[in-house]
Design a protein around this nucleic acid. Sequence first.
DNA 1: GTTCCTGCAAAAGCTTTGCAGAAGA
DNA 2: TCTTCTGCAAAGCTTTTGCAGGAAC
Lengths: 138, 138
Amino acid sequence: MNSSIKDLLDELKNKNIRLSHQRLKVLEYLILNHCHPTADQIYNALHKDVPTLSKTTVYNTLNALVKANIVRPLNIENAETRYDINTFDHGHFKCESCGDVVDFSINLDALKANDLNNYEITDKNVYFKGICPKCLQI
Amino acid sequence: MNSSIKDLLDELKNKNIRLSHQRLKVLEYLILNHCHPTADQIYNALHKDVPTLSKTTVYNTLNALVKANIVRPLNIENAETRYDINTFDHGHFKCESCGDVVDFSINLDALKANDLNNYEITDKNVYFKGICPKCLQI
DNA sequence: GTTCCTGCAAAAGCTTTGCAGAAGA
DNA sequence: TCTTCTGCAAAGCTTTTGCAGGAAC
């Protein structure tokens, strides 16, 4: 399960991340939209409500949240980093037609690599590509 | 198993990919160096032997090989596409200390995603991150 | 002789950096 | 008050594009 908003804010305080209006807006967007947005998508979505918002601040905020382990960066396509606030184990599916990314549940602990016995593994990633049901119908 | 060089060249001919000197050099590099190089690494390695080689040609060649399904592009880190000529099922491990990428065997067919029943899945990717044994010793 | 490829220069796209003014604690 | 954040402009990187000359077939 996701941590509560309060826990999140406490964690931010502990890590000396100031809760500016812009940062709260980015965080709110990530919590309300589990669609693995790019920095650009976040910027475009928030720009209407916060006209002075700059892309620099979006990047700044996202990098701070990644460093604080609150969001995870997602690299499926080149030159397109997406951001994910879900903390439970899951894989990602990207539709090559519409570009949408959805989560799917997968047990990452069960993923064993016998070839990597002397390696220290800190991060496991799984992503699939293909066509989503919506695009298959067209 | 990897296909033989002859099979590769036949496949290139079938797909109307001309066997220029530069392209053969890039292909040779990929076959001899299963280290998942970036375009830049390939360029730097071949530049000595083929002084007139341009990065544009390296990119052009890699894109042609990807389109022909002869090499696979690998996106682990943002703004750093790597290229892989191994065709058998495998995952990738990237050392966050030295940056090296190594293969490990994994059964991708066994990776099932129950949440994606109505999805058409064309591509499965697994990558781990951590520290390799060499860097752990330092 | 066609068609496609090469390589230069320039451009495009995402992300980072420098810095002065503004806002959070 | 002190520290950090914002947002503009500019720069940094990887990758792509336009195009004239050259190579493959």
